[in-house]
């Protein structure tokens, strides 16, 4: 237990010290939020709803990014630099190591969510009911699981450069096509049809529904679970193939 706590604490410290994390997961989403709600689109028909909607978009954007990139790239780094080899010689079990990474990552996400929510409340006076704040926060925390699974897939790549490149592109594509930057409604029909089946849209939509006073759609939950299962199976398959060599 002591080992687990120590490991979690370490993971959290390391993420917070990572400048890329602070920039991409905290500074950028808040900056975008300010620009898109106060400079670009300040005459939306229902301003309060738009401000709450976009706050969710940016929080989802932030958590999705750190799920896919922080974890994955670090895994590649530790492996290519030989640190994982050293860890394998210590008594630390793989299970504890993996669990600590997941828990540490989730604590980081809870932290990002809180910071961005507070920023939204301060910048635009976004006011939701206590239940809505808590529910949307919890949704974003849980909905990040399929993206953490993508992170472990990224973590299986051989080179840091490939991992960073691939995850960055995937991140941006998923964010745009999932309607996190611009609402899906203003995109071409074709894009909308595809977007509705992407994990990023379903991740975002749950939170958007909550701030409109609704519950996340069943379809959102099912699609995310399906992606989670898919990515986990894929990562299991790849790991087995890599071990066989």
């Amino acid at each position: 237990m002591k080992v687990f706590q120590m490991q979690c604490k370490t993971e959290i410290i390391r993420v917070l010290r990572n400048r890329y994390f602070v920039f991409w997961s905290l500074v950028m989403p808040i900056l975008f939020y300010y620009i898109f709600t106060n400079v670009v689109n300040k005459n939306a028909p229902d301003l309060a709803e738009w401000q709450a909607h976009y706050l969710m978009s940016m929080t989802v954007f932030s958590v999705m990014g750190s799920s896919m990139m922080t974890l994955g790239i670090r895994m590649v780094q530790e492996r290519s630099q030989g640190w994982s080899t050293f860890i394998r010689i210590t008594p630390l079990s793989d299970g504890v190591y993996f669990a600590a990474q997941m828990v540490g990552q989730s604590v980081i996400h809870a932290f990002s969510i809180t910071i961005i929510f507070i920023a939204g409340a301060l910048i635009n006076d976004v006011s939701l009911t206590a239940a809505e704040w808590v529910m949307s926060g919890a949704w974003i925390l849980l909905g990040s699981l399929p993206f953490l699974a993508i992170g472990t897939l990224v973590g299986m790549m051989k080179k840091v450069e490939t991992a960073a490149g691939v995850s960055n592109v995937l991140y941006m594509v998923l964010a745009i096509t999932g309607g996190l930057w611009m609402p899906l409604e203003i995109m071409p029909k074709m894009m909308q049809a595809i977007g509705k089946w992407l994990p990023s849209y379903n991740f975002g939509n749950g939170a958007w529904e909550i701030v409109r006073g609704n519950m996340p759609d069943w379809k959102n939950i099912l699609v995310l679970i399906a992606y989670l299962v898919l990515f986990m199976l894929l990562s299991k398959y790849i790991r087995r193939k890599q071990e066989a060599v």
């Binding site: 002591k2 080992v3 120590m6 490991q7 370490t10 410290i13 390391r14 010290r17 990572n18 780094q77 530790e78 630099q81 030989g82 640190w83 080899t85 050293f86 210590t90 008594p91 630390l92």
Partner: peptide, 19 residues
């Protein structure tokens, strides 16, 4: 190889906790 993002003392404490 070393663990990045941690001070030497922190790494030592971490690894000690495994044993």
């Amino acid at each position: 190889s070393v663990m990045t993002g941690l001070k030497v003392r922190e790494i030592l404490q971490l690894i000690r906790s495994y044993y």
